[in-house]
Structures are given as structure tokens and as C-alpha cells.
Write a protein that binds this DNA or RNA. Structure first.
Lengths: 218, 218, 218, 218
DNA sequence: TATGAATGAGGCTTCATTCAT
DNA sequence: AATGAATGAAGCCTCATTCAT
């Protein structure tokens, strides 16, 4: 059990969900919690609500998770995991035959365009961001995730044939990851998704342009 | 007293802080609240904490503000006011002689980069944004503010020679603001300042490029 | 859940007390609250007091009642119900053979004289009346109750042979009820019980005289 | 300064208002408090409201009264005093020449019919009754007052030629005083004033009838 | 294992009273 | 004497967490 910062709180799931039934229950809790967060917001998310909506008793929640925070933490981890997974799959698909610009376009679509989770996704993402600022553990997790993503991005860019040094590729990766939080901010501010994508693309292009093969234009 | 939506709540300061001492106390409350918000987050902001940190009794808070929300509301108003003020000052300084891209970078730094209040500013802003999603009154205020800013931005970009529509100018402003937080993230992650500046520059250029007059150099 | 006036408050019990234990707790809360109201008055009735006196935590109150008002509301409903019940039983017992004045005195004793709940009943009633003037919901309930009582009284007096209109019958009932509190006051002041009975009798007679059949003896 | 029950509270005015200005201020406080009680009810009566409505600072209130309770106490005393005063004046006016029944009728008019204080009187009386059940001191005062009134009534009845023993007259006095609280209850319950008077009269008549000279009829 | 009743610390707010000016 | 800012105990209510069954 992971022990964390002031007030020492356990944040990982209480036990590895080996048994099938256990796993199903954990999944249900997480799923229901996602829905409630997306629907009512983090502020109105109570353990009692989660239990009732999951069709189980509050006590059962605490068999699978040591506390409320741990539930959100797990959701956050899975969410980050999905993002990483996509990037990894994307990395494997890259052949090197496509023009970089197309690769980047495809990446943007994959990373920003797809729905990461079933249902009211944008809202959930916003609430997770709130949670991140509420629980220090999430922030730490986010930082580690950032490094991994930067590395992945670096490798993607490498395989796509980006004409940059290792150091530069890592920087580009970090920066592109940062751009994703810009996207999220703008979403929270209510900017239209399609519009966001356009600006996002322009910024990305600005970053990559110096490393694109001569003559590559929009 | 501003009367607001469904759960009738008073959200403006209880009285115009005419007297000197009064004003000092109001300012102290606001300042302390800013710090607490930035440090611990909106969720952990309690009236009792504010009172204790301000070195006064809870009851005293309620002499100056009708409720907790009103304190946040006031902070929000002042923050918006400062942003507007800066943009206005900036607008007056624009000569039209500088390259657009420099003007834009200067703008981003001036508007959002400077510390608006003592202490951890970026964090405060995030918390204010959370508050905005929590209190309908803030959203309304933000909407009005947004219109004013749009106008100002539009005029700044116009004067700087940017060939974009009103809507686009607003979007550019928002995006450039977002880029600034990327810069801060990277700094926290330990990236070299000079390096950050380069990438920042590239991203900014990517954003502005479509609107720059043909052949404009860096 | 009964939805009520302006500050939307739930005033019925949170759940029908099906389970045995549940019902016991609800009853305990109500009983304790009655005692506290009678002893210390409505003004000093606090949720914390109720909880402590009931030997349970505050939170438990709120499992069974949505708020303080709802507790008082339930007490009030039960009290009104008991009064009605008594009148109905009394109505069935009337034969018409007794002299009216005796029937009336018996009525006063039966309806208001008996202890409706364990303990200091008269006081409780006073407090309930205070509560009624404090909570709009109670007033509405009281109004409905009043109509039902009016009908019952009307039928009782009618069956007892009283020659009065419906309106007058209701008024007589209310007045006789009032006389009973005089009796209690005098008892508290130390007047001899037998003596009180005599005066009580005379006042009752004064009230009924105009409606008694010509020549009716005491 | 009168020291009273648990929690020891001072309830008489802080000083005999000798100085003219002092007296004026005390009177103003009392008057304003009466209005506020009648208008908003005892529950919403706060010292701050009283002060503001009196056009003075809260602190000044506490120069003339040791606490809030004392203000209400004083109002109550004055109110009781006015009732007594009327009865005394009435006593002096009795000549013995009038038929008893007329005297009693006149008394009823004087005691129950007149307005005891200027303004929203009925409401104030109701609030004072609430206060009585809130503050033990008021109840004690009410009891003493009751005795005095009973004595006065007894003397009135004597002078009016009521054919009763001293003991009986005292009892009658006590009972008639009790009847007045019936009147108040009925008022609180919203019964029409004129109607109340009629029943009140009938009960009074019932009480007195045995002692009226033979042949006195309505 | 599962349950859900029970807990109680802690959040927001009010207001009688005090005290420095 | 007068002022009114300041105080803080106390009121109502919520909800994460525990524990007996």
C-alpha cells in the first residue's frame, strides 16, 4: 500500500483485484465514479453517492479502496495509462515512410481527436484536472507521466524522421506535451473544440517547422 | 448589494471600504485568501482558515463580506481588473514600429507573465478558474470581462498590424496566454530558460504566421 | 418527500421507518425532542442537544430526518393525529342520554386533559404552538387539522344535543380547550383541586348555557 | 441590579434613568424594540437591529441595559404595569351604584377591549408571550403580577357589591385572570376578536352568576 | 465478504457582548 | 458617554470513514 504525504493517506487500491468478481467490482466503482464526476462535478462527489450508484454498500467501497482519494487516483492513473498506450500503439505504427508532417497530423488526431474514455469525456477530464490540484499525489503522478510522454514523443519524432538531435527531440516532446495542457485550459474556458484543434496544430507546426525537410509546407 | 441567482446570496463587499482601517482589513482578508487559495487550493479554503490566517475572528470576516463566496468574488473582480488595466497600458505603448511577433511576445509576458499579486500567481489563477466553475456569479462576471478583453486585444493586435478578425484576435490572445503556462511548466521541470525561450518563440510564431503580412521576417 | 415553501426544505421523515430498529430510533428522537421542548423551550432546542440527549451522534439525526424542522413537524403531526383519534373515539361513545354539560366536561378532559405523550404535556403543546408560528409548514398542517376537528366537534356537540351552528360548535370546542389550561394554571398556583373543578364547571356552563335546551338542569 | 437564575443574568435596567436624556434614550430603545418585535417577531430581534433602528450604537444599548433580555423584561414589566394601572383606575371609578353585571361588562371592555399600547399591539402581545416562555424571569414576574391582579379583581368585585366571601372573591379574581390568557390563546389561533369577546363574556358570566343578586339576567 | 447504520470533526454563518478609541 | 469594530461560542448541517452484524 502506497503511503503518501501529509496526512498520510493510502492511495493505491487496497488489493490487487485478482479474483474475477473483485475486478468487476473495482471496475464498476471506477466507471460509476467517472460518470458521477462528469455529471455532477468533483465537489458533489461523495462516497455515499458512489456506493449507491454502484449498487453496493459504502463499506464495500472501502474493501477495494482505502479512501475516496484512492478511487480518483486510480481513475487518474488509468486515464494517463490510456494516453500512454495510445502513443505506444502509435509509435509502433510509424513506418518512416510517411512525411513527418502527416505523422504529426495523424498524431494530433489520435491524441487530441479521439475520445479517451466512453461517455461524457471532456467533462471528466476537466474534473480530473480539478482533482489534480486537490490531491498532491495526482500532481506527482502527472509529472512522472509527463516525462514518459516526452520520451515517447521523442521516439515517435525520431522514427518519423525528424531531423533533430536527441536533446532537441526530448525538448520538443516536452513542449508538445505542454501544449496539450493548453488545449485543456482552453476547453475549460469553453473554446470550441474544432477551433482549439486549429490553433493547436499551428503551434505544433511552429515547433516542428525548423526540423522539417526543406519545402514542406501546409 | 448585488442580488444574484437562485440561492439568493450577496456577493459584493458588505460596504465600500471608505475608512482607512476598514480598507486595510478588507485588503488583508483578500491578500490572505489569495495566499491560501494558491497554497492549499480552493477546496481547502475555509472561512475559519482565512480568519485565523488573517489574525482576526471569523465574525470579522462577516463584517466586511456577507459570505465566503463574496470574498472570492472580490478577488476575482480585482484580478480581472488588473488584467484589463495592463492591457490598456500596453495598448497605449504600441507604436506599430516593432515586428508583430515581438509585440505579441511582449504582450503575453506583460499580461499574464507579471505577478498580479504577491506570491504564487499562476496557482491562484487556476484556483480562481475553479471557483468560476463553482459559482455562477463569477462566470457571469468573467463573460463580461471576456468581452472587454476581446475588444482590447482586438485593438492591440490591430494596431500591431495583425491581419486577423476580431474573433481570431481573441483566440490568439487566449492561446498565447496558454503558452505562457507551458513556459512555467517547463521551467519547473528544470529546462534551461534560454531553451524555453526558443521553443516559446517558435510556438508563438506558428500561431501568428497565418496572419503576418507576407514576407515578414522574424 | 414533501416539498415546501420558499427556502425549499424537506419536512417529512427521511424514510418510512420500516425496519424495527429504524422505527425505534425515530421514536426515540421524537420522544427526546418532546422532552427537551417541554423542558427548555423551542428556542433552546438544538440538533446537538437532541443528539446528545438521544445518546446518538448528530449525523444520526440526519439519517432519519432531513433537518431540525422535520423533527418538529413529525411531532406536530403525531400530536394532531392523537387529538383527532381521541375525538373520534369519544364521538363513538356518546349516547345522547347524558346531560350536555357533562358530555362537554368529559370532552374537555378527554381531548386535552389526558397526557398525550409521556411527560410535561401542556408545556409541549405551548412549544408546538410556538413552532407553528415559526414554520409555515406547520401552520398549513394545523389549518387542515383545524377543519377536521371542526367537523368532529360539530358532530359531537350535535349528537350531544347542543343547539348550535357549526361555527359556534367549533368555537365552543376551542374555548373549552382554553379553559382546560386555566385549570392547569390554577393548579400550579396551588388552588385546591375540588375548588378548581367548581369554577371550571361554572365557566363551562356559562359557555354552554345559551345553547342548552330550555330548562336543562345542571 | 437584580441577579437571577442559571446563567446568572442581570435583568433590570442598568441604572435608574434619572437624567432626562438618559430616560429619553431608554424610552426610545423600548419603543423601537416593541416595534421590531411586533414587526419581525422575537426570533429576528437582535441587539444590532435594535441599536440601528434606535439610531444609536450597540454599545450604548449596554449602557442602559445589561443585556438583551433586560430590554424585553422591562417592556414586559411596563406592559403588565399598564394593565394593573387600568384596573386600579377602574377600581377607583366604581361607585357601587351600578348593577354588578354592568360593572363586569365595563371591566371587560376596559381590560380586554382597549389597546394597551400604541401601534401593532396584538402582535406585540403575542411576542411577549413567546418571550415569557423563553425567559424564566418573565414567568416569575407574570406569576407575581397574577396575584396582584387577582387581588385587584377581588376588590373590584367587592366594591361592585358581589355577594361572595373574601376567599371566593380571590378565587374569582384568579379565575378571571386565567380567562384572559384564554383570550390571548384564541387570538393567537386567529379567532376573530369580536367573537372572542362574546365567549369571554359568557364564561365570565358563568363564573359570576351564582353571586349575582337574584333576578339579574342578561 | 457484504452491509449500512453510526459517527463526529469540521464547514458556514449569526449575534450577544466587550472594549479601545 | 458614545461608538462600532471585533470577538468567538454556538447553531445547523455534511460526509468520509468505521464497525457490529
Amino acid at each position: 500500500m502506497v503511503e503518501t504525504t501529509i496526512p498520510k493517506r493510502k492511495i493505491s487500491a487496497r488489493k490487487a483485484p485478482n479474483q474475477e468478481r473483485s475486478k468487476a467490482r473495482v471496475d464498476q466503482i471506477l466507471e460509476v465514479t467517472c460518470e458521477l464526476m462528469a455529471t455532477n462535478g468533483l465537489e458533489k462527489l461523495t462516497t455515499n453517492h458512489i456506493a449507491k450508484a454502484s449498487g453496493m454498500a459504502v463499506g464495500s467501497l472501502y474493501r477495494y479502496f482505502p479512501n475516496k482519494q484512492a478511487i480518483i487516483y486510480e481513475i487518474y492513473l488509468r486515464w494517463l495509462g490510456q494516453v500512454r498506450e495510445r502513443m505506444e500503439r502509435f509509435l509502433e505504427e510509424i513506418t518512416g515512410a510517411q512525411p513527418i508532417i502527416e505523422v504529426m497530423q495523424a498524431l494530433a488526431e489520435r491524441i487530441y481527436g479521439e475520445s479517451l474514455m466512453p461517455g461524457d469525456d471532456k467533462q471528466l477530464e476537466m474534473e480530473l484536472r480539478k482533482a489534480m490540484s486537490l490531491y498532491p499525489e495526482l500532481r506527482e503522478e502527472d509529472r512522472k507521466h509527463g516525462e514518459q510522454i516526452a520520451t515517447l514523443l521523442s521516439r515517435i519524432l525520431e522514427r518519423a524522421g525528424l531531423n533533430a538531435s536527441d536533446k532537441e527531440r526530448m525538448e520538443i516532446g516536452a513542449y508538445l506535451y505542454g501544449l496539450d495542457s493548453v488545449r485543456q485550459d482552453l476547453m475549460e474556458q469553453g473554446m470550441d473544440q474544432q477551433t482549439i484543434r486549429v490553433w493547436q496544430w499551428r503551434a505544433t507546426f511552429g515547433i516542428l517547422q525548423p526540423f522539417l525537410p526543406e519545402g514542406s509546407r501546409f
